[in-house]
C-alpha cells in the first residue's frame, strides 16, 4: 500500500496531529491468553503509528472467526462482516474510496475455505490493500474443527481420527493466481519478522497477501511448538528487495537469499515443505491495479443532469 496520499478528503489540520500506538487502541481484546492474534494486533498498531496513518482514513475489514474480531480492537474505522466475505466488502470500499487505507484480516477458514473464491479474485484484482490471513490451522471460534490448513492426521472435533487430506498450501496457491503481486509468509511468534513483513506489505503498491502463522493455545498449541523450539526448522528468505531482519540472525541460522522478483524460484520455494519459510516470496509492483483501471472523474449533480439529458435524446420519441 502506498503512503497515505492526501486526497480532497484531507484537511490541513491532519498535518498537526501526531499518533502514538495508543491512538489506535480500542476495546480490550477478548482473545484467549497466549493467542497469537495479540502479537499481530500490537505489531499492526506499531505499524500504523510508524506510518502515521490517520485513524479516520484507515479501515480494517474482517470476516468471522477469532481473528476477525481484530477491527473491534483498533481505533480506526472497522467492518466486521460475514464469514468468508471480507474481501468483497474491502473491494467495494477501495473501489468507491481509493484514498482510504484498507486492511483485511481473515482467518484460514475465512480466507481459503468459505471465502476461497474471493481470495482468488481479490488477488487478481490487485487492489492496493493489505490482506492478512491469520492461520492457526484450525477453526477456533466454532471450537476445533479441521480447516483447509490443518495438517493431515491431526485430530479435531470433526475429523477425530485425524484430518483426512493433506493441508492446502496457501502461499503456493496464491503464487499461482494471475496478477498476484505480493505474497509473503511470517509468524506471529517472531515479532521483528512479523513487523518487517507487515511494513513491506503496507508499502507495496497493490494487493499484499500475507499468511501469518499463528498459534492457537486452545486447539493447536502443539502445532507450531517445534518451530519455536528448533529455529533450524525455519528458513528466512532474505533480500534487499524483500525483508531483512539482521536482529534475528543470531537465532535463525537457516537463511536463504531469495530475490522476490523471481516468480519461478518463489513457486519452487513455496512448494517445498522441508522447513517453514518466512519472508517475501514474490513482489512486483508493475501489475495492473483494478482501482486504477476503473478510476474516473467525479461530476456535480448539474453536470450529470446535462449528460443524462444528452443520453435521453438517444431515446427521444
Amino acid at each position: 500500500m502506498s503512503a497515505a496520499g492526501c486526497s480532497l478528503f484531507c484537511s490541513l489540520a491532519d498535518d498537526e496531529r501526531e499518533f502514538g500506538m495508543a491512538d489506535y487502541e480500542a476495546a480490550r481484546p477478548r482473545w484467549c491468553a497466549g493467542c497469537g492474534d495479540l502479537a499481530v494486533l500490537t505489531s499492526m498498531q506499531r505499524l500504523l503509528a510508524e506510518e502515521q496513518l490517520a485513524p479516520e482514513r484507515t479501515v480494517f475489514v474482517s470476516g468471522i472467526g477469532c481473528s476477525s474480531r481484530f477491527p473491534h480492537y483498533m481505533k480506526t474505522y472497522g467492518f466486521h462482516g460475514l464469514h468468508g466475505r471480507a474481501l468483497p466488502v474491502a473491494t467495494g470500499i477501495k473501489l468507491h474510496r481509493p484514498e482510504l487505507e484498507v486492511f483485511v484480516v481473515m482467518g484460514d477458514g475465512d480466507c481459503i475455505s468459505i471465502g476461497a473464491g474471493h481470495w482468488v479474485h481479490a488477488t487478481r484484482y490487485n487492489m492496493d490493500m493489505v490482506a492478512l490471513m491469520l492461520d492457526n490451522e484450525v477453526y477456533g471460534l466454532t471450537k476445533n474443527q479441521s480447516s483447509p490448513t490443518t495438517p493431515a492426521g491431526y485430530a479435531t472435533n470433526t475429523q477425530p481420527y485425524g484430518t483426512y487430506l493433506p493441508a492446502m498450501n496457501p502461499v503456493e496457491a496464491t503464487l499461482g493466481i494471475t496478477n498476484a503481486s505480493f505474497v509473503a509468509q511470517t509468524a506471529e511468534w517472531i515479532p521483528p519478522h512479523l513487523y518487517a513483513t507487515l511494513k513491506a506489505a503496507y508499502q507495496h503498491d497493490g494487493f499484499a497477501f500475507v499468511r501469518i502463522l499463528q498459534r492457537c493455545p486452545k486447539f493447536t498449541g502443539d502445532l507450531f511448538q517445534q518451530y519455536i523450539q528448533s529455529p533450524d526448522m525455519v528458513e528466512l528468505l532474505e533480500h534487499e528487495a524483500g525483508v531483512e531482519t539482521p536482529a534475528l540472525h543470531a537465532i535463525y541460522k537457516n537463511r536463504r537469499r531469495h530475490d522476490p522478483g523471481d516468480i519461478d524460484a518463489a513457486r519452487r520455494l513455496a512448494e517445498m515443505d522441508d522447513v517453514v519459510r518466512l519472508g517475501i516470496f514474490f513482489r512486483d509492483e508493475s501489475f495492473p491495479r483494478y482501482e486504477e483501471t476503473r478510476s474516473l472523474p467525479s461530476f456535480t449533480a448539474e453536470e450529470r443532469i446535462s449528460i443524462l439529458n444528452e443520453e435521453f435524446d438517444r431515446y427521444a420519441v
Binding site: 475489514v61 467492518f79 460475514l82 468483497p88 466488502v89 474491502a90 467495494g92
Partner: peptide, 11 residues
C-alpha cells in the same frame, strides 16, 4: 452484494 455494501458503507 458485498462490493455494493462496502461501497455504500464508504460513501
Amino acid at each position: 452484494a458485498g462490493v455494493a455494501i462496502g461501497a455504500s458503507y464508504a460513501g
